[in-house]
Design a protein around this nucleic acid. Sequence first.
RNA 1: GGCGACGUGGCCAAGUGGUUAAGGCGGAGGUUUGCAAAACCUCUAUUCCCCGGUUCGAAUCCGGGCGUCGCCUCCA
Length: 453
Amino acid sequence: MKIYDTLSSQKEDFTPDSDEVKMYVCGVTPYDSCHIGHAMSYVIFDVVRRYLKFRDYNVKYVQNFTDIDDKIIARANERGIPAKEMAEEFINEYFEDMDGLNIMRADFYPRATEEVPDIIRVVQTLIDKGHAYELNGDVYFRIQSADNYGKLSHRKLDDMRAGARIEVDEAKEYALDFALWKAAKPGEPSWDSPWGPGRPGWHIECSVMSQKYLGDSLDIHGGGQDLVFPHHENEIAQSEAFTGVIPFVKYWMHNGLLQLDQEKMSKSLGNLITVKEILEKSSADALRLFVLSSHYRSPLSFSDEGLAAMERGAERLTRAANLENGVTQGDPLDANPYQKRFIEAMDDDFNSAQAVAALFDLSREINKASEEGIPIANAQNTLKKLSDVLGLKLEEDHAEFDGGPFVDLLVEIRSELRAAKQWQLSDIIRDRLTQLGISLEDTAQGTKWRQEK
RNA sequence: GGCGACGUGGCCAAGUGGUUAAGGCGGAGGUUUGCAAAACCUCUAUUCCCCGGUUCGAAUCCGGGCGUCGCCUCCA
Protein backbone atom coordinates (compact mmCIF):
# COMPACT_ATOMS: atom_id res chain seq x y z
CA MET A 1 0.00 0.00 0.00
CA LYS A 2 1.23 3.45 -0.84
CA ILE A 3 0.28 6.76 0.69
CA TYR A 4 1.34 10.18 -0.55
CA ASP A 5 3.08 12.04 2.23
CA THR A 6 2.95 15.83 2.10
CA LEU A 7 6.24 16.15 3.93
CA SER A 8 8.29 14.03 1.53
CA SER A 9 6.14 15.08 -1.43
CA GLN A 10 5.94 11.55 -2.74
CA LYS A 11 4.13 8.28 -2.39
CA GLU A 12 5.58 6.18 0.41
CA ASP A 13 5.09 2.53 1.26
CA PHE A 14 2.68 2.28 4.13
CA THR A 15 4.35 0.58 7.06
CA PRO A 16 2.65 1.51 10.32
CA ASP A 17 4.64 1.34 13.53
CA SER A 18 2.42 -1.39 14.92
CA ASP A 19 -0.74 -3.37 14.15
CA GLU A 20 -2.66 -0.45 15.46
CA VAL A 21 -2.69 2.42 13.00
CA LYS A 22 -2.71 5.70 14.87
CA MET A 23 -4.73 8.22 12.93
CA TYR A 24 -5.53 11.80 13.80
CA VAL A 25 -7.68 14.07 11.70
CA CYS A 26 -8.13 17.73 12.49
CA GLY A 27 -11.68 18.43 13.47
CA VAL A 28 -13.73 21.56 13.33
CA THR A 29 -13.83 24.75 15.28
CA PRO A 30 -17.50 24.67 16.23
CA TYR A 31 -18.69 28.20 15.62
CA ASP A 32 -20.86 27.56 12.57
CA SER A 33 -22.62 24.82 10.63
CA CYS A 34 -20.60 22.30 8.65
CA HIS A 35 -20.32 23.01 4.94
CA ILE A 36 -19.69 20.72 2.02
CA GLY A 37 -15.96 21.34 2.23
CA HIS A 38 -16.01 19.68 5.63
CA ALA A 39 -18.14 16.93 4.15
CA MET A 40 -15.54 16.32 1.46
CA SER A 41 -12.65 16.16 3.88
CA TYR A 42 -14.33 13.93 6.42
CA VAL A 43 -15.73 11.59 3.79
CA ILE A 44 -12.21 11.16 2.44
CA PHE A 45 -10.67 10.35 5.78
CA ASP A 46 -13.61 8.14 6.66
CA VAL A 47 -12.81 6.13 3.53
CA VAL A 48 -9.12 6.01 4.43
CA ARG A 49 -10.07 4.61 7.78
CA ARG A 50 -12.61 2.14 6.39
CA TYR A 51 -10.15 0.92 3.81
CA LEU A 52 -7.42 0.37 6.40
CA LYS A 53 -9.89 -1.68 8.41
CA PHE A 54 -10.83 -3.60 5.28
CA ARG A 55 -7.13 -4.37 4.88
CA ASP A 56 -7.12 -5.81 8.40
CA TYR A 57 -5.46 -2.95 10.22
CA ASN A 58 -6.76 -1.91 13.58
CA VAL A 59 -7.27 1.78 13.40
CA LYS A 60 -7.41 4.11 16.36
CA TYR A 61 -9.02 7.26 15.04
CA VAL A 62 -8.99 10.50 16.96
CA GLN A 63 -10.61 13.74 15.93
CA ASN A 64 -10.57 16.89 17.99
CA PHE A 65 -12.87 19.81 18.56
CA THR A 66 -11.13 23.14 18.92
CA ASP A 67 -13.91 24.49 21.06
CA ILE A 68 -12.28 27.69 22.24
CA ASP A 69 -10.79 30.37 20.01
CA ASP A 70 -11.27 33.92 18.75
CA LYS A 71 -14.04 33.09 16.32
CA ILE A 72 -16.06 31.17 18.86
CA ILE A 73 -15.79 34.00 21.36
CA ALA A 74 -16.71 36.60 18.77
CA ARG A 75 -19.69 34.65 17.47
CA ALA A 76 -20.95 33.82 20.92
CA ASN A 77 -20.74 37.48 21.89
CA GLU A 78 -22.75 38.42 18.81
CA ARG A 79 -25.43 36.02 19.87
CA GLY A 80 -25.17 36.90 23.51
CA ILE A 81 -24.65 33.35 24.72
CA PRO A 82 -21.72 31.69 26.49
CA ALA A 83 -18.98 30.36 24.22
CA LYS A 84 -19.28 26.93 25.74
CA GLU A 85 -22.98 26.73 25.04
CA MET A 86 -22.54 27.73 21.43
CA ALA A 87 -19.71 25.28 20.86
CA GLU A 88 -21.89 22.55 22.32
CA GLU A 89 -24.67 23.42 19.92
CA PHE A 90 -22.46 23.18 16.85
CA ILE A 91 -20.77 20.03 18.06
CA ASN A 92 -24.17 18.37 18.28
CA GLU A 93 -24.99 19.61 14.82
CA TYR A 94 -21.66 18.30 13.61
CA PHE A 95 -22.54 14.81 14.77
CA GLU A 96 -25.93 14.98 13.07
CA ASP A 97 -24.31 16.04 9.82
CA MET A 98 -21.61 13.39 9.95
CA ASP A 99 -24.15 10.69 10.78
CA GLY A 100 -26.16 11.86 7.80
CA LEU A 101 -23.11 11.38 5.62
CA ASN A 102 -22.59 7.88 7.03
CA ILE A 103 -19.25 8.83 8.51
CA MET A 104 -18.08 6.47 11.22
CA ARG A 105 -17.63 7.91 14.66
CA ALA A 106 -14.07 8.44 15.82
CA ASP A 107 -12.76 6.47 18.78
CA PHE A 108 -12.13 9.69 20.69
CA TYR A 109 -13.33 13.25 20.32
CA PRO A 110 -11.14 15.27 22.68
CA ARG A 111 -12.00 18.93 23.19
CA ALA A 112 -9.53 21.69 23.78
CA THR A 113 -11.44 23.05 26.75
CA GLU A 114 -11.28 19.70 28.49
CA GLU A 115 -7.54 19.36 28.08
CA VAL A 116 -6.40 22.69 29.46
CA PRO A 117 -4.29 21.29 32.33
CA ASP A 118 -2.33 19.16 29.87
CA ILE A 119 -1.99 22.05 27.50
CA ILE A 120 -0.57 24.20 30.29
CA ARG A 121 1.82 21.42 31.22
CA VAL A 122 3.09 21.13 27.64
CA VAL A 123 3.46 24.89 27.24
CA GLN A 124 5.43 25.07 30.48
CA THR A 125 7.69 22.26 29.31
CA LEU A 126 8.31 24.08 26.03
CA ILE A 127 9.33 27.15 28.02
CA ASP A 128 11.58 25.05 30.23
CA LYS A 129 13.24 23.53 27.18
CA GLY A 130 13.88 26.93 25.68
CA HIS A 131 11.39 26.53 22.83
CA ALA A 132 8.95 29.13 24.10
CA TYR A 133 8.87 32.37 26.03
CA GLU A 134 6.35 34.39 27.94
CA LEU A 135 5.48 37.93 27.03
CA ASN A 136 2.89 39.93 28.98
CA GLY A 137 0.78 36.89 29.75
CA ASP A 138 1.08 35.46 26.24
CA VAL A 139 3.38 32.57 25.47
CA TYR A 140 5.03 32.29 22.08
CA PHE A 141 6.74 29.42 20.38
CA ARG A 142 10.29 30.24 19.32
CA ILE A 143 10.19 29.17 15.69
CA GLN A 144 13.90 29.37 15.14
CA SER A 145 14.44 26.75 17.81
CA ALA A 146 12.49 24.17 15.83
CA ASP A 147 14.00 21.44 13.76
CA ASN A 148 13.88 22.67 10.19
CA TYR A 149 10.79 24.83 10.52
CA GLY A 150 8.94 24.96 7.19
CA LYS A 151 9.72 21.40 6.22
CA LEU A 152 6.09 20.38 5.79
CA SER A 153 4.93 23.34 3.74
CA HIS A 154 8.27 23.47 1.91
CA ARG A 155 9.05 27.06 2.52
CA LYS A 156 11.97 28.93 3.91
CA LEU A 157 11.80 31.36 6.77
CA ASP A 158 13.20 34.18 4.65
CA ASP A 159 10.59 33.69 1.94
CA MET A 160 7.82 33.71 4.48
CA ARG A 161 9.00 36.83 6.14
CA ALA A 162 9.32 38.64 2.86
CA GLY A 163 5.69 38.26 1.87
CA ALA A 164 4.17 38.05 5.29
CA ARG A 165 1.05 40.08 5.85
CA ILE A 166 1.05 39.47 9.53
CA GLU A 167 0.99 42.42 11.83
CA VAL A 168 4.25 42.23 13.64
CA ASP A 169 4.09 42.39 17.37
CA GLU A 170 7.24 44.35 17.99
CA ALA A 171 7.78 42.66 21.28
CA LYS A 172 7.96 39.21 19.78
CA GLU A 173 11.48 37.89 19.34
CA TYR A 174 10.75 36.92 15.78
CA ALA A 175 7.89 37.95 13.52
CA LEU A 176 6.71 34.42 12.83
CA ASP A 177 6.69 33.16 16.38
CA PHE A 178 3.17 32.00 17.13
CA ALA A 179 1.05 31.96 20.27
CA LEU A 180 0.83 28.89 22.44
CA TRP A 181 -1.13 30.69 25.10
CA LYS A 182 -3.12 33.87 24.88
CA ALA A 183 -3.71 36.17 27.81
CA ALA A 184 -7.39 36.80 28.42
CA LYS A 185 -8.89 40.11 27.47
CA PRO A 186 -11.65 41.42 29.72
CA GLY A 187 -14.81 39.37 29.45
CA GLU A 188 -13.23 36.44 27.67
CA PRO A 189 -13.45 32.88 28.92
CA SER A 190 -10.20 32.01 30.63
CA TRP A 191 -8.31 29.46 32.65
CA ASP A 192 -5.71 30.13 35.31
CA SER A 193 -2.15 29.46 34.31
CA PRO A 194 1.38 30.20 35.49
CA TRP A 195 1.25 33.21 33.12
CA GLY A 196 -2.05 34.53 34.38
CA PRO A 197 -5.59 33.94 33.11
CA GLY A 198 -5.79 33.01 29.45
CA ARG A 199 -6.59 30.29 26.95
CA PRO A 200 -4.79 27.98 24.55
CA GLY A 201 -3.65 29.36 21.21
CA TRP A 202 -4.59 27.63 18.00
CA HIS A 203 -2.31 24.65 17.12
CA ILE A 204 -1.24 23.60 20.60
CA GLU A 205 -4.44 21.71 21.34
CA CYS A 206 -3.83 19.30 18.48
CA SER A 207 -0.28 18.58 19.59
CA VAL A 208 -1.39 17.92 23.14
CA MET A 209 -4.43 15.83 22.31
CA SER A 210 -2.81 13.73 19.63
CA GLN A 211 0.06 12.97 21.95
CA LYS A 212 -2.24 12.14 24.82
CA TYR A 213 -4.52 9.80 22.92
CA LEU A 214 -2.16 8.32 20.36
CA GLY A 215 1.38 8.78 21.67
CA ASP A 216 4.49 10.63 20.56
CA SER A 217 4.38 9.45 16.99
CA LEU A 218 1.33 9.16 14.74
CA ASP A 219 1.00 7.05 11.64
CA ILE A 220 -1.44 9.26 9.77
CA HIS A 221 -2.34 12.86 10.36
CA GLY A 222 -4.92 14.30 8.04
CA GLY A 223 -6.72 17.47 7.18
CA GLY A 224 -7.47 19.89 4.39
CA GLN A 225 -4.67 21.38 2.35
CA ASP A 226 -5.42 24.73 3.93
CA LEU A 227 -4.10 23.37 7.20
CA VAL A 228 -0.62 22.60 5.91
CA PHE A 229 0.47 26.08 6.81
CA PRO A 230 0.49 27.29 9.44
CA HIS A 231 -1.47 24.77 11.48
CA HIS A 232 0.32 21.52 10.74
CA GLU A 233 3.69 23.17 10.34
CA ASN A 234 3.28 24.54 13.84
CA GLU A 235 2.05 21.26 15.20
CA ILE A 236 5.21 19.58 13.98
CA ALA A 237 7.37 22.27 15.53
CA GLN A 238 5.64 22.04 18.90
CA SER A 239 5.27 18.31 19.07
CA GLU A 240 8.80 17.49 18.03
CA ALA A 241 10.19 20.14 20.35
CA PHE A 242 8.14 18.75 23.22
CA THR A 243 8.70 15.01 22.79
CA GLY A 244 12.03 15.06 21.00
CA VAL A 245 10.57 12.32 18.82
CA ILE A 246 11.06 12.85 15.08
CA PRO A 247 9.01 12.35 13.06
CA PHE A 248 5.88 13.43 14.85
CA VAL A 249 3.88 11.99 11.95
CA LYS A 250 4.83 9.28 9.47
CA TYR A 251 2.28 10.11 6.78
CA TRP A 252 0.83 13.56 6.35
CA MET A 253 -2.33 13.41 4.25
CA HIS A 254 -4.03 16.51 2.88
CA ASN A 255 -7.12 16.64 0.77
CA GLY A 256 -7.59 19.17 -2.01
CA LEU A 257 -10.10 21.89 -1.32
CA LEU A 258 -13.59 22.13 -2.62
CA GLN A 259 -14.22 24.89 -5.13
CA LEU A 260 -17.47 26.60 -5.76
CA ASP A 261 -18.07 28.48 -8.97
CA GLN A 262 -14.36 28.59 -9.74
CA GLU A 263 -13.74 30.10 -6.38
CA LYS A 264 -12.67 28.66 -3.11
CA MET A 265 -15.58 28.09 -0.81
CA SER A 266 -14.56 29.67 2.41
CA LYS A 267 -15.84 31.25 5.52
CA SER A 268 -14.38 34.61 4.70
CA LEU A 269 -15.98 34.71 1.26
CA GLY A 270 -19.30 33.66 2.70
CA ASN A 271 -20.15 31.39 -0.23
CA LEU A 272 -20.97 28.38 1.87
CA ILE A 273 -23.29 25.47 1.22
CA THR A 274 -24.06 23.56 4.37
CA VAL A 275 -24.16 19.82 4.75
CA LYS A 276 -27.78 20.08 5.81
CA GLU A 277 -28.76 21.87 2.61
CA ILE A 278 -27.10 19.20 0.51
CA LEU A 279 -28.62 16.28 2.36
CA GLU A 280 -32.06 17.73 1.87
CA LYS A 281 -31.87 17.39 -1.88
CA SER A 282 -29.38 14.64 -2.31
CA SER A 283 -28.47 11.28 -0.82
CA ALA A 284 -25.35 10.65 1.21
CA ASP A 285 -24.35 8.02 -1.35
CA ALA A 286 -24.50 10.56 -4.16
CA LEU A 287 -22.42 13.09 -2.25
CA ARG A 288 -19.87 10.44 -1.32
CA LEU A 289 -19.67 9.26 -4.92
CA PHE A 290 -19.22 12.82 -6.04
CA VAL A 291 -16.28 13.23 -3.69
CA LEU A 292 -14.78 9.82 -4.38
CA SER A 293 -15.02 10.09 -8.15
CA SER A 294 -12.05 12.36 -8.23
CA HIS A 295 -8.71 12.14 -6.52
CA TYR A 296 -8.62 13.28 -2.92
CA ARG A 297 -5.55 15.45 -3.42
CA SER A 298 -7.07 17.35 -6.33
CA PRO A 299 -9.33 20.31 -5.86
CA LEU A 300 -12.93 19.45 -6.54
CA SER A 301 -15.43 21.81 -8.11
CA PHE A 302 -18.84 21.48 -6.64
CA SER A 303 -21.85 21.77 -8.90
CA ASP A 304 -25.50 20.80 -8.60
CA GLU A 305 -25.29 19.14 -12.02
CA GLY A 306 -22.34 17.03 -10.94
CA LEU A 307 -24.10 15.98 -7.80
CA ALA A 308 -27.26 15.14 -9.72
CA ALA A 309 -25.20 12.98 -12.07
CA MET A 310 -23.86 11.08 -9.10
CA GLU A 311 -27.38 10.58 -7.79
CA ARG A 312 -28.07 8.63 -10.97
CA GLY A 313 -24.84 6.74 -10.54
CA ALA A 314 -25.77 5.84 -6.97
CA GLU A 315 -29.12 4.57 -8.18
CA ARG A 316 -27.37 2.44 -10.75
CA LEU A 317 -25.17 0.79 -8.13
CA THR A 318 -28.09 0.42 -5.77
CA ARG A 319 -30.22 -1.38 -8.35
CA ALA A 320 -27.46 -3.80 -9.21
CA ALA A 321 -26.80 -4.50 -5.56
CA ASN A 322 -30.43 -5.24 -4.80
CA LEU A 323 -31.55 -7.07 -7.95
CA GLU A 324 -33.20 -10.41 -7.41
CA ASN A 325 -33.04 -12.99 -10.13
CA GLY A 326 -33.60 -15.95 -7.81
CA VAL A 327 -31.10 -18.11 -9.65
CA THR A 328 -29.06 -20.46 -7.48
CA GLN A 329 -28.10 -23.16 -9.96
CA GLY A 330 -25.03 -23.05 -12.16
CA ASP A 331 -21.67 -21.27 -11.98
CA PRO A 332 -22.08 -18.01 -10.12
CA LEU A 333 -20.72 -14.73 -11.41
CA ASP A 334 -17.13 -14.28 -10.25
CA ALA A 335 -16.61 -10.86 -8.72
CA ASN A 336 -13.00 -11.45 -7.73
CA PRO A 337 -11.45 -9.64 -10.70
CA TYR A 338 -13.40 -6.54 -9.72
CA GLN A 339 -12.41 -6.82 -6.08
CA LYS A 340 -8.81 -7.17 -7.21
CA ARG A 341 -9.09 -4.01 -9.29
CA PHE A 342 -10.70 -2.23 -6.38
CA ILE A 343 -7.89 -3.18 -4.03
CA GLU A 344 -5.14 -2.31 -6.49
CA ALA A 345 -6.69 1.10 -6.98
CA MET A 346 -7.13 1.82 -3.30
CA ASP A 347 -3.67 0.51 -2.47
CA ASP A 348 -2.27 3.19 -4.73
CA ASP A 349 -2.77 6.19 -2.49
CA PHE A 350 -6.52 5.67 -2.26
CA ASN A 351 -7.35 6.04 -5.92
CA SER A 352 -11.05 5.99 -5.21
CA ALA A 353 -11.98 7.12 -8.71
CA GLN A 354 -10.57 3.91 -10.13
CA ALA A 355 -12.13 1.91 -7.32
CA VAL A 356 -15.52 3.41 -8.10
CA ALA A 357 -15.05 2.56 -11.78
CA ALA A 358 -14.51 -1.08 -10.79
CA LEU A 359 -17.79 -1.03 -8.89
CA PHE A 360 -19.66 0.33 -11.90
CA ASP A 361 -18.16 -2.35 -14.10
CA LEU A 362 -19.12 -5.00 -11.57
CA SER A 363 -22.64 -3.64 -11.53
CA ARG A 364 -22.88 -4.00 -15.27
CA GLU A 365 -21.73 -7.61 -15.02
CA ILE A 366 -24.31 -8.30 -12.34
CA ASN A 367 -27.11 -6.87 -14.46
CA LYS A 368 -25.96 -8.86 -17.43
CA ALA A 369 -25.57 -12.10 -15.48
CA SER A 370 -28.96 -11.59 -13.95
CA GLU A 371 -30.59 -11.49 -17.37
CA GLU A 372 -28.60 -14.50 -18.49
CA GLY A 373 -29.80 -16.58 -15.57
CA ILE A 374 -26.48 -16.78 -13.78
CA PRO A 375 -26.39 -16.73 -9.95
CA ILE A 376 -25.49 -13.22 -8.83
CA ALA A 377 -25.89 -13.29 -5.04
CA ASN A 378 -22.18 -13.75 -4.36
CA ALA A 379 -21.19 -10.98 -6.71
CA GLN A 380 -23.78 -8.72 -5.13
CA ASN A 381 -22.32 -9.43 -1.73
CA THR A 382 -18.94 -8.39 -3.03
CA LEU A 383 -20.43 -5.24 -4.50
CA LYS A 384 -22.06 -4.40 -1.18
CA LYS A 385 -18.94 -5.20 0.78
CA LEU A 386 -16.72 -2.99 -1.38
CA SER A 387 -19.31 -0.24 -1.46
CA ASP A 388 -19.36 -0.33 2.31
CA VAL A 389 -15.61 0.30 2.28
CA LEU A 390 -16.46 3.55 0.53
CA GLY A 391 -19.26 4.17 3.00
CA LEU A 392 -21.96 3.71 0.38
CA LYS A 393 -25.14 2.21 1.74
CA LEU A 394 -26.78 1.24 -1.55
CA GLU A 395 -30.09 0.84 0.20
CA GLU A 396 -33.40 0.83 -1.57
CA ASP A 397 -35.63 2.13 1.10
CA HIS A 398 -38.74 4.11 1.07
CA ALA A 399 -39.41 3.34 4.69
CA GLU A 400 -39.09 6.96 5.75
CA PHE A 401 -41.74 8.01 3.25
CA ASP A 402 -45.09 8.46 5.01
CA GLY A 403 -47.14 7.98 1.86
CA GLY A 404 -45.86 4.44 1.32
CA PRO A 405 -49.12 2.60 2.07
CA PHE A 406 -51.05 4.89 -0.27
CA VAL A 407 -48.60 4.32 -3.08
CA ASP A 408 -48.86 0.60 -2.44
CA LEU A 409 -52.62 0.89 -2.78
CA LEU A 410 -52.40 2.76 -6.08
CA VAL A 411 -49.89 0.29 -7.42
CA GLU A 412 -52.18 -2.56 -6.44
CA ILE A 413 -55.14 -1.02 -8.23
CA ARG A 414 -53.01 -0.27 -11.25
CA SER A 415 -51.91 -3.88 -11.39
CA GLU A 416 -55.56 -4.91 -11.56
CA LEU A 417 -56.12 -2.44 -14.38
CA ARG A 418 -53.09 -3.74 -16.25
CA ALA A 419 -54.29 -7.30 -15.85
CA ALA A 420 -57.51 -6.13 -17.49
CA LYS A 421 -55.48 -4.31 -20.16
CA GLN A 422 -56.86 -0.96 -19.07
CA TRP A 423 -53.72 0.75 -20.33
CA GLN A 424 -55.07 4.29 -20.42
CA LEU A 425 -56.06 4.33 -16.77
CA SER A 426 -52.96 2.51 -15.57
CA ASP A 427 -50.76 4.96 -17.50
CA ILE A 428 -52.53 7.90 -15.92
CA ILE A 429 -51.78 6.51 -12.50
CA ARG A 430 -48.16 6.01 -13.42
CA ASP A 431 -47.77 9.46 -14.98
CA ARG A 432 -49.41 11.22 -12.07
CA LEU A 433 -47.26 9.37 -9.58
CA THR A 434 -44.17 10.29 -11.59
CA GLN A 435 -45.17 13.92 -11.37
CA LEU A 436 -45.37 13.47 -7.60
CA GLY A 437 -41.86 12.07 -7.50
CA ILE A 438 -42.77 8.39 -7.38
CA SER A 439 -41.48 6.37 -10.29
CA LEU A 440 -42.88 2.95 -11.19
CA GLU A 441 -41.18 0.05 -12.88
CA ASP A 442 -43.08 -2.97 -14.16
CA THR A 443 -40.79 -5.94 -13.76
CA ALA A 444 -41.20 -9.69 -14.05
CA GLN A 445 -41.47 -9.77 -10.27
CA GLY A 446 -44.28 -7.21 -10.27
CA THR A 447 -44.39 -3.44 -10.10
CA LYS A 448 -41.77 -1.66 -8.02
CA TRP A 449 -41.81 1.96 -6.99
CA ARG A 450 -39.20 4.38 -5.80
CA GLN A 451 -39.21 7.87 -4.46
CA GLU A 452 -36.96 10.07 -6.58
CA LYS A 453 -34.40 12.22 -4.83
C1' G B 1 6.67 39.33 -4.61
C1' G B 2 7.63 33.92 -2.78
C1' C B 3 5.93 28.71 -2.93
C1' G B 4 2.85 25.04 -5.19
C1' A B 5 -0.95 22.56 -8.11
C1' C B 6 -3.59 21.94 -12.42
C1' G B 7 -5.19 22.35 -17.97
C1' U B 8 -7.73 14.89 -20.96
C1' G B 9 -14.54 13.86 -25.15
C1' G B 10 -20.86 18.04 -24.45
C1' C B 11 -20.06 18.01 -18.64
C1' C B 12 -17.38 15.58 -14.44
C1' A B 13 -13.02 12.66 -14.11
C1' A B 14 -8.96 8.38 -13.99
C1' G B 15 -4.51 7.37 -16.46
C1' U B 16 1.76 10.03 -15.89
C1' G B 17 7.00 6.54 -21.21
C1' G B 18 4.89 1.54 -25.21
C1' U B 19 -1.84 -3.17 -25.74
C1' U B 20 -8.20 -0.62 -28.49
C1' A B 21 -6.87 6.82 -23.60
C1' A B 22 -10.87 3.86 -17.26
C1' G B 23 -15.52 5.09 -15.19
C1' G B 24 -19.96 8.27 -14.33
C1' C B 25 -23.51 11.79 -16.34
C1' G B 26 -25.53 13.48 -20.94
C1' G B 27 -26.65 12.41 -26.29
C1' A B 28 -27.86 9.03 -30.81
C1' G B 29 -29.49 4.24 -32.51
C1' G B 30 -31.01 -0.78 -31.26
C1' U B 31 -32.88 -5.13 -28.01
C1' U B 32 -36.64 -5.67 -24.33
C1' U B 33 -41.66 -3.63 -22.83
C1' G B 34 -48.94 -3.10 -24.02
C1' C B 35 -46.41 1.77 -23.77
C1' A B 36 -42.81 3.25 -20.34
C1' A B 37 -39.02 2.68 -16.67
C1' A B 38 -34.91 -0.19 -15.50
C1' A B 39 -31.41 -3.29 -17.84
C1' C B 40 -28.36 -4.87 -21.94
C1' C B 41 -25.79 -3.90 -26.86
C1' U B 42 -23.56 -0.36 -30.42
C1' C B 43 -21.90 4.52 -31.35
C1' U B 44 -20.32 9.39 -29.00
C1' A B 45 -11.51 12.04 -27.82
C1' U B 46 -6.85 8.98 -34.40
C1' U B 47 -6.41 12.36 -29.47
C1' C B 48 -4.86 14.54 -24.18
C1' C B 49 -4.15 23.84 -23.78
C1' C B 50 -0.25 25.78 -27.53
C1' C B 51 4.93 25.69 -29.48
C1' G B 52 9.56 23.46 -29.41
C1' G B 53 12.87 19.42 -27.55
C1' U B 54 14.51 14.38 -25.51
C1' U B 55 13.25 9.28 -27.13
C1' C B 56 12.70 3.78 -31.57
C1' G B 57 8.20 5.54 -28.98
C1' A B 58 5.10 11.01 -24.87
C1' A B 59 -1.30 12.77 -22.79
C1' U B 60 2.75 10.95 -19.72
C1' C B 61 9.83 13.45 -19.39
C1' C B 62 12.41 18.56 -20.38
C1' G B 63 12.14 23.96 -21.91
C1' G B 64 9.10 28.10 -23.27
C1' G B 65 4.23 30.30 -23.78
C1' C B 66 -0.99 30.91 -22.61
C1' G B 67 -4.83 29.95 -19.06
C1' U B 68 -7.08 28.47 -14.29
C1' C B 69 -6.60 27.78 -9.16
C1' G B 70 -4.54 27.31 -4.19
C1' C B 71 -1.21 28.67 -0.07
C1' C B 72 1.81 32.62 2.07
C1' U B 73 -3.90 35.71 6.81
C1' C B 74 -9.18 32.59 10.08
C1' C B 75 -10.42 28.06 7.22
C1' A B 76 -11.57 20.83 6.05
